[in-house]
Design a binder for these strands. Sequence first.
DNA 1: ACCCGCGCTGAACAAGTGTTCAATACTCTG
DNA 2: CAGAGTATTGAACACTTGTTCAGCGCGGGT
Lengths: 199, 199
Amino acid sequence: MRSASDLTARARIRDAALIRFGTDGIAGTSVRAVAADAGVSPALVVHHFGSKEGLRQACDDHVLEGIRSGGEAGTDALGEVLQAATPVRRYLARALLDGTAAASTLFDEIVDRTQQWLATGEEEGWVRPASDARARAVTYVSWLLAPLVLGDHVGRLLGGDPAETATAVRGARAGLEMLTSGLFADDRWLTAFNEVGER
Amino acid sequence: MRSASDLTARARIRDAALIRFGTDGIAGTSVRAVAADAGVSPALVVHHFGSKEGLRQACDDHVLEGIRSGGEAGTDALGEVLQAATPVRRYLARALLDGTAAASTLFDEIVDRTQQWLATGEEEGWVRPASDARARAVTYVSWLLAPLVLGDHVGRLLGGDPAETATAVRGARAGLEMLTSGLFADDRWLTAFNEVGER
DNA sequence: ACCCGCGCTGAACAAGTGTTCAATACTCTG
DNA sequence: CAGAGTATTGAACACTTGTTCAGCGCGGGT
């Protein structure tokens, strides 16, 4: 068998599904549509993946495998996610919102890795201490994931081509600036928040 | 006519649709489902809204109107969004991802208001200067919108009840800390980024 | 009293959905 | 070359989808 070579119809179907799922959502995508995109009959996709749900699982596995393949523990796990190809990004955003089990797992993993990464940075002195390390890791991850999920809007406002590297760089730099220098010059908002939060 | 009173079947349908659209996505929601939730016949929803698309538009309008009703220009426009009821939040997240025209408009408005707000803050000295004010506003908005879109995952990792105020507060405080004190203690990442970005 | 208009419904329609199945084309093993 | 096994298909099935339409009950205006 040649299942390893990966230019088979099975792979074509999976890739087509990934794009359509990411663009139109899972519920909004018909098996016939991905079959047409892959240039095969609808019957073949269910022959290979058992069902539409099986196809979605295969997409999940493919994306997760691709992300997990690079990146050892301790590194910034988000770089790989953000550098993933655009169809994958779109699919991931959908999966995250739809609450796919695989997406949840991925999110948890990224948070764990990031928290670890921030902890070592804290020890080595290049990350500031946090009052709530867990909450900070979660928030940080959701921040870096935000342009991924809201990519269309960010791209639209920052430049012509959405999901273009140049515009993504603009946003990334702005974010890094906020994360290094801070956004607010004094802690008026922080203290105000803490005062309100006491209940 | 009593269309103003707003406990009519029309309003019930709209509210049911808002919840289902937010939970299952627009494509994943059938007219029959929202009709059943509202306790009416499927024919009535199309009688009131013309079509499923019309129903979605009505949801858009309702959400936007609710958000826009409070909040003058110059204030932090995001507070209202984040304090919106959970069904509305879920719906907004979906609409943002689906690229609804209304959602795009809302996003643009929020960015504009925020940029203005940050500019006055910069003049008054409580916001640090930015190298790219537009990019900063866009990134800032997408950051504050992130917990909204990824609410389920954030909630799951930060506490028992997702979308519970207590857990949301935890995340918000962590975010505020990063925005005031910064996350990174030196600019190693920023300079590294700038070096790479020169091409 | 009439009946017009409005909210509302049940039944139906055509189109599209995921999935099944028998049958064909293909490819490698013996 | 024969044959087993896989890839692939067209047609069909049962079902759900959004939408249409004739008709019901009922309140208020003339």
